[in-house]
């Protein structure tokens, strides 16, 4: 299940819309529409699970424009147009870069320390199951205390650090 919270992001919305279309409105009796729908769903699934590539966005854009002509009926046209509208959102490119800003895609949810707020207590580091947080505890007499840093490539969005932080110093990456 890819929904971590009730929140939804643009790619997931597009995915749900196409899934609904495939389950209900899409008849499958012309050649382009069922294939385009299936491929688009596959691409959006990749995008929302962290495996999307830039070329997927090109392909999806192509589907959204070409299917308007190629589909046999207004239902396919509508599905294509809706996809096209959804693709206007910058969230898609962000997903390809690896980040789901709204936290809807668990695989693409990442957290970052807000440097100004970090008290360097180390609670987050202790809580993190992935060893993704780097940093040293605050030492009063030192002048080079640095805020903790979450390594994006190791973070898996479990949000345990968020719960542990007493200073509200960890936010989701957008």
């Amino acid at each position: 299940m890819s929904t971590a919270t009730e929140v939804i992001c643009a790619p997931q919305q597009a995915l749900e819309a196409l899934r609904a279309f495939a389950a209900d409105g899409m008849c499958g009796r012309c050649i382009p529409c069922p294939i385009a729908t299936r491929q688009s769903i596959a691409m959006l699934e990749r995008i929302t699970s962290g495996e999307g590539e830039a070329v997927d966005l090109d392909r999806l854009t192509r589907v959204s424009t070409e299917l308007i002509d190629a589909a046999r009926c207004p239902k396919g046209e509508e599905a294509a147009k809706k996809l096209g509208e959804a693709l206007a959102s910058p969230e898609f490119a962000r997903h390809v870069e690896g980040i789901c800003g709204s936290g809807a895609c668990a695989a693409l949810t990442r957290y970052r320390v807000i440097p100004e707020r970090c008290t360097m207590c180390g609670a987050c580091q202790e809580a993190c199951p992935r060893d993704a947080i780097e940093g040293d505890p605050f030492i009063a007499w030192r002048g080079d205390n640095k805020p903790y840093v979450i390594r994006l490539e190791k973070c898996d969005g479990c949000a345990k650090c968020v719960a542990a932080c007493p200073a509200d110093a960890i936010e989701r990456v957008t």
Partner: peptide, 13 residues
């Protein structure tokens, strides 16, 4: 463009 699109789709299945 439309023709190529449809043929590309067919090759994907």
């Amino acid at each position: 463009r439309s023709r190529r699109f449809i043929l590309e789709l067919i090759w994907s299945t």
